[in-house]
Design a protein around this nucleic acid. Structure first.
Lengths: 239, 239
DNA sequence: TAGATTGTTAATCGATTAACAATC
DNA sequence: TAGATTGTTAATCGATTAACAATC
């Protein structure tokens, strides 16, 4: 019977449990709960827009209105990482953006490899949201001979078995798994061998990785199934 | 300032808050927490495999081993919906599978439309995981004239503006949004007008829908950003 | 100074876990 | 009957929210 021992990051609705304590790193003295980290990413998105809008300063209350989160929640979330605001004034948008970007380690590029050059893998390889983002897809792999060697966007599909060696050159620190369920663990093992520090798994199956590898799951089927549960179980608008 | 009023289903890490109380439907007398529903989907996956393996009966403890969830958690989760096991024996796999399938409303087909025929939309339209599943993609829409009319798999890409009318024929009850962020709300409005009961949003932006429409978000960027936070913050293996 | 707003401590809420009586 | 295992009640844990002193 296989037990889960790998590091899983996030709530169970993301197919992950057991939030591991963040370990010494300048920014994280305390141990922020996972929901906080998830919201941090959301605040970042909001802050980036605020910068574009030319807003210089924002209060937690105004931010709350934009994010659909309470103002206390925001202040509490930020308090895990330091004091960023000024009483009576609010937060300097530029400054907060810079600090949160650092904390989330988004201040440097992350090189991503994709294992599985099917529909989803191909789509992700060409995801336009990655341009101007800290994420850069530097390689895509498959174990299907009919796919290996083919070009995809500006990449050549490489043999998944060579991933560990090839990544010495590619230097990717994040891997995305877009293979069928029964190949997902193998893909994960290859990524771990290749030395990635984080894995985003799209295969509809649990995978096991060492505890120092961050793992999150995106599970389309699960999302749809939970949606189905709520169909016709949600209260109608108050009218 | 736009406030969130729509129905959002799931924890914040799925970009959703405010779990609405499930309303009268035979199966749900109580109000199961959202994490429970998410796990239910997971138990279902496990049960389907057990059936294939020919396992007739399973205890919560054995199930726990397979799912990476505690046995009490499983029993508690199930208890929101009824008594499915026999003390001293365990659960009849077939029976539990059937009951959970009903509860999640997966005992009938769900027709899905996709708004956004870009990389991701196209990939989802051809997702092989949907064959033999209760989900069937019956239409794909876009508002880009260069795409409208083109064939994708066995579907023709239709004009998104016609979605509400076309869906009278298509009869989809689930919509997936795979358009860029700035078109997502418009897509959502069209889906609501078309009468879908549930929306899965892949656009990296919050959308607002009436409270009786179930909404979940899949947010690639957020997942990657949270992963980045954990990079080098996870404790190394105990060795 | 008065008003606004932060960061934090304490209270609340909700979900998970432990303990155990019921029952096959 | 004894052993296994369920379903549930009570205890625990963790995250959110309320209250408020500090400070711009």
């Amino acid at each position: 019977m296989k037990e889960f021992t790998g590091a899983r990051v996030g709530c169970f609705c993301c197919l992950a449990t057991g939030v591991p304590e963040p370990v010494a790193l300048p920014e994280s003295s305390g141990k922020a709960p996972e929901p906080t980290l998830s919201r941090l990413s959301f605040y970042l998105r909001s802050l980036r827009r605020l910068v574009k809008e030319g807003v210089k300063t924002i209060s937690s209350a105004k931010m709350a209105g934009r994010c659909g989160v309470s103002a206390v929640q925001i202040r509490k979330d930020l308090s895990y990482f330091g004091e960023f605001g000024r009483p009576g004034i609010g937060y300097d948008v530029q400054h907060l953006l810079a600090r949160l970007t650092e904390i989330m380690q988004l201040d440097h590029q992350h090189r991503v490899v994709i294992v599985g050059a099917g529909n989803l893998g191909s789509a992700l390889a060409g995801y336009s949201g990655f341009v101007l983002s800290p994420f850069q897809v530097v390689g895509i792999f498959d174990n299907n001979f009919s796919k290996i060697g083919r070009r995809l966007w500006d990449l050549e599909i490489l043999d998944a078995h060579h991933l560990p060696e090839v990544n010495r050159e590619l230097r990717a620190n994040i891997g995305m798994i877009t293979v069928p369920a029964d190949a997902a663990q193998e893909a994960a093992d290859l990524l771990v061998k290749a030395g990635v520090r984080a894995i985003l798994n799209f295969a509809p199956v649990m995978i096991v990785v060492p505890p120092d590898i961050a793992l999150r799951n995106v599970d389309l089927t699960r999302e749809l199934e939970v949606l189905c549960y709520y169909i016709n179980r949600l209260p109608a608008p108050p009218e």
